[in-house]
Design a protein around this nucleic acid. Structure first.
Lengths: 179, 179
DNA sequence: CTAGTTTCGGACCGGCGGTCCGAAACAGTG
DNA sequence: CACTGTTTCGGACCGCCGGTCCGAAACTAG
């Protein structure tokens, strides 16, 4: 059932017009069943997104690869945001569908988790002397991976790889301590 | 008619649930008239926003105050983004209503104009040697004033003034040239 | 085979953006 | 003032979609 939904999103060219009825039909099931299983549209989209997001989540929680505790904080932050960006790129249609609903995306558990992780990393990266707030900085950095911004940039002719490079530069600059 | 709409948005506590019927009723007019005058919901919201935005627009186009051509580019950029942020704060409900529709906000003329202005300023501020793209940077900086981010930060306990300070710091840092 | 229980699915509802056509207001003419 | 052509108005109406709900089907137990 989740798989059917995933297929729909993967194949449709217009993710924002995918309706619950469509998904139900594609899964060979009634709308009632769909709603009983996921509560509402957001629930379904969340479940799908959570599934795709899991690898990154476990990698971070087990401190694997670039997220190992020994790595410098700035490096961890850049890698983390790059990973989130890649997640968005890979699940582009799904993310657009989420946006089409009035899900601000910031209200999901996943955003909260991402924010918390980033805040933790920022606490390591920022010297205590700065007056920059990790709270602001975390949200500001996460704004860089919002799907509508990503879409705009891709539509403007930027390649995904170039986008990743620019973002890395942007994040690095944002973390530079001044004044 | 525009005034009636403005009043509705100014007084309602739940901007995203303001319906076209509500506005028509408040203006003492039929829905047909409303749609004939503005085309669709987006048209109305755009017209309202454009009206409120005009002061800033003319100030920039006449190079007044902080936007005078003599001023250093970084100063102009920080002031400009601060002015846009203030605009968003002052028209908070209206902006939220826009977001509720599926208007990505980046498709409006106003966004385009804002982007162009910022790009022009960035061309002055960035040395030719950097590999940072003004295109990316402009969109990235404008992401800082997206209404949902602003909302999240306000909801998180940040005061509007503190928000403006943090944004100024963030913009300054982003413009620092490194590597 | 029957009765009880759980699960399924699609007809149905409410609300909203947007349309459309009959009515009302207006203007020109004798 | 009466009559008619024209423009503008407004609210009943439509289509769509998320979400509900109840009758039917399937499954279990005795």
């Amino acid at each position: 059932m989740l798989d059917a939904a995933a297929t729909v999103f993967a194949t449709t060219p217009a993710p924002e017009s995918v309706t619950m009825g469509t998904i139900a039909a594609a899964a060979g099931v009634g709308k009632g069943t769909l709603f009983r299983a996921f509560g509402d549209r957001d629930g379904l989209l969340d479940a799908l997104a959570a599934e795709r997001f899991r690898p990154l989540r476990t990698a971070v929680e087990h401190a694997e690869g670039d997220f190992a505790t020994g790595r410098p904080a700035v490096r961890r932050i850049v890698s983390f945001l790059d990973a989130v960006l890649r997640f968005k790129l890979e699940n582009h249609n799904l993310m657009r569908a989420r946006e089409a609903a009035s899900v601000t995306s910031r209200s999901s558990d996943r955003y909260r988790w991402t924010y918390d992780v980033l805040c933790g990393m920022l606490a390591d990266a920022l010297p205590a002397s700065t007056h920059r707030s990790p709270h602001y900085l975390a949200h500001a950095l996460l704004a860089l991976v919002q799907i509508d911004l990503v879409d705009e940039l891709l539509a403007g002719g930027l390649s995904p790889d170039e986008l990743r490079r620019q973002q890395a530069a942007q994040v690095t600059a944002a973390l530079a301590i001044r004044s």
